[in-house]
Design a protein around this nucleic acid. Structure first.
Lengths: 211, 211
DNA sequence: GTCTATAGATGGATAGAC
DNA sequence: GTCTATCCATCTATAGAC
């Protein structure tokens, strides 16, 4: 959006987005100045306006790009015939993707209120589109008799919330590997939808988590 | 903290906190000015400094007060001999309390990064103290053989995240009452810890949630 | 305890030289 | 496409009158 064409300009715009992402995630959109962003890019503040018309445009680009990438990445995930496999795949995908992009995830949630009204709608649409994927899986499982679920929309939100919550405590080099965390969550989610099949064992040490 | 004594002053300070809470929750700490807060209180900006030395002090007071109130309210909750009852009570308490104080909850999580270093430590301690309550319940249940849990700390964080997530979609007048939502979550959480006892039935209509 | 007024800093965004 | 310089608005916090 509003990027200058040409390879050099495109490179600079990418750099701006990258640095703005880090700063917004750490300090919050409102607390970050265009001068700060420019400084991290080795530019003067005025130069940013060759690439983005406003600070708001940078935020919007970050949020839209993140959500579109998330959806695209999930779309590239292999299909699964059984609802159980689809649910496991969704969970593993969600956790791994979110751990991999903590700053994007953080911003996409925390800075919603700083999106101007015109930008908010499309972003919310993308969020809901992703949530609908999980609801579809749950509904299929209910229809096939694989899952026992009181309330599909509530359960979908609960599952997404608990998985996204991993980002608040996960640290690289901690007690559990990403794969182990995925497995713990898959087991919890299976239990949640009425399936007691345990996936292969995982860490038995029960210690404090690296919060 | 740094409140002026005297009944009139205390009333004004409360008013300031109340309006600051609403504004911070809606627009974010960094995006709200002292003038805005003063305006909502029918004051001029300078008058705020009779009650709080800095804007930061207002934020800190809001966060500390919220977490202390949360812990105090949970402490007043009746004790339960069985881990299952304790877990249900914790879940119902958490959901109802969080739905009742959405702005406090929102700020206590979102504005952590805007707390100055000296203020962050005590706030994090309070958060962890609350999380420890749930871990204690889970450990008791594992010890008594009531619960089957892969990883207590991870499960505790998952449960807290899924419950707190209710605040992102709950709206008064929506499809489900608070009590119904509590029950759905209690059932999910029971399944999560390996107990299949269902609590009394709840809404059967399976429709979209009022997100 | 609140007011007006203001200091002093910093913000987003623009203009024009190169 | 980036620079310097700057406009103008707004910010936190303070000073002093009442």
């Amino acid at each position: 959006m509003a990027r200058t064409v040409g390879s050099v300009g495109a490179e600079t715009a990418k750099r701006v987005l990258k640095e703005a992402l880090r700063l917004f995630a750490r300090e919050g959109y409102a607390a970050v100045s265009m001068r700060q962003i420019a400084g991290k890019c080795g530019l003067q503040a005025g130069a940013l306006y060759n690439h983005f018309p406003t600070k708001q445009a940078i935020l919007n680009e970050l949020m839209v790009t993140h959500l579109e990438s998330l959806l695209a990445a999930y779309d590239e995930t292999p299909d699964h015939a059984s609802p159980l496999d689809a649910l496991e795949a969704f969970a593993r995908f969600h956790i791994a993707y979110h751990i991999d992009k903590p700053e994007e995830v953080f911003i996409a949630y925390m800075e919603l209120r700083n999106l101007e009204t015109g930008n908010l709608g499309p972003v919310m649409k993308l969020r809901q589109q992703y949530e609908r994927c999980l609801r579809g899986i749950l509904r299929n499982g209910v229809a096939s008799g694989d899952f026992e679920i009181d309330d599909v929309p509530v359960t979908a939100m609960a599952i997404i919330s608990m998985m996204t919550g991993v980002n608040t405590w996960f640290r690289y080099g901690g007690r559990l590997s990403i794969r182990e965390i995925e497995t713990i969550y898959v087991n919890m989610i299976f239990a949640l939808v009425g399936k007691n099949d345990q996936r292969m064992g995982n860490s038995t040490e029960e210690e404090r988590v690296n919060v």
